[in-house]
């Protein structure tokens, strides 16, 4: 681009314009009665490793919305503001949709409350608004959380792209409702993957902060995820001596029912590259194509028409 200062041109993030799409929340709804406890037949470990999403996302995405509501006054770009507003609604719906899975798990004898109550504490208290003096400390904490969300969104987009392409789940007969929830969510994550990062660049963009919050977000995700998988495996009423292990995680990655450890490691330097921009990863076209055929997204569209 000719109008970009030469000194920065090779290091500054360059979004790909064609990956942009207008964002809107879809009023999806999932009925869970038919979904078995092990929705990937015969594979409790994979089922529960993916189920950790239902533990983290209701509180996590509610927290995204909470933080972004506060950042709106700092946005000076109308297009970005519209993107953030679309992003907020999509995240709110993700949180609601995953939250509705939890009572279904409880009915099947796997009560997630001991764990989700801790995740609630994590997002509402530890990462909540805190008692800070107004002015700089409060703004610092807000910017820190905006950067944390950008780092987490790097991983949600990574997972979204993975699940859209995880054909092995179909081959092994995964429950169609659960697969639709994961792919609808994954597709919207891919669709809005640039928003959190663009917002971070717009309101702060400091590289030191990007690295620092990435390290925090990555460690927290690994810690909470393995803990959640262990929790599910140990409390699953149908398993006698359920255990989750990293060894099994690597094996399932090789089989294609979970992301591979290699792909996850390779995504780290990409985020830390100064020229990183989320529009370089994943495909908006694929996401939009899935949403055009997703049973839940189609029903949401019909509902909108029916209400009009």
């Amino acid at each position: 681009m000719s109008n970009t200062p030469q000194a920065r041109s090779d290091r500054a993030p360059q979004p790909i314009a064609s990956e942009w799409t207008a964002l809107k929340a879809r009023k999806v709804s999932f009925a869970w009665e038919e979904t078995p406890l092990h929705w990937l037949p015969g594979d409790p470990f994979t089922t529960h490793t993916i189920n950790v999403l239902h533990l983290l996302l209701p509180a996590g995405e509610r927290w995204f919305v909470h933080v972004y509501k506060q950042v709106l006054p700092y946005i000076e770009d109308e297009q970005l503001r519209a993107d953030v507003i679309g992003f907020i609604g999509q995240e709110a719906m993700h949180s609601q949709a995953h939250d509705e899975v939890l009572p279904h798990l409880r009915e099947q004898g796997l009560d997630p409350t001991p764990y989700t109550a801790q995740i609630d504490w994590f997002f509402e208290k530890l990462l909540g608004d805190r008692t800070l003096p107004p002015g700089r400390p409060r703004k610092w904490w807000l910017m820190e959380r905006v950067a944390l969300i950008a780092a987490i969104e790097h991983y949600t987009a990574f997972l979204g792209d993975w699940v859209l392409n995880a054909d092995e789940l179909d081959r092994r007969g995964a429950d169609p409702t659960m697969l639709d929830l994961l792919r609808w969510h994954g597709a919207e994550e891919v669709e809005h993957r640039s928003v959190a990062f663009d917002l971070f660049l717009h309101v702060d963009g400091s590289y030191a902060r990007r690295v620092r919050t990435w390290a925090t977000a990555f460690s927290a995700l690994v810690f909470l995820w393995q803990r959640g998988a262990r929790f599910f495996m140990e409390n699953d009423p149908t398993l006698v001596d359920g255990k989750a292990s990293f060894k099994e995680f690597f094996a399932k990655g090789r089989q294609g029912v979970l992301p591979t450890a290699g792909a996850m490691v390779r995504s780290i330097p990409r985020y830390l590259n100064r020229a990183y921009h989320p529009s370089h990863e994943g495909s908006t076209q694929q996401a939009v194509a899935y949403l055009a055929s997703s049973p839940a997204a189609l029903a949401a569209e019909a509902r909108e028409k029916g209400a009009a």
């Binding site: 209701p58 939250d99 939890l102 409880r106 997630p112 409350t113 801790q118 609630d120 504490w121 509402e124």
Partner: peptide, 8 residues
């Protein structure tokens, strides 16, 4: 844990 859980 949060005393009055929100999720679920």
């Amino acid at each position: 844990a949060l005393e009055t859980p929100v999720s679920g």
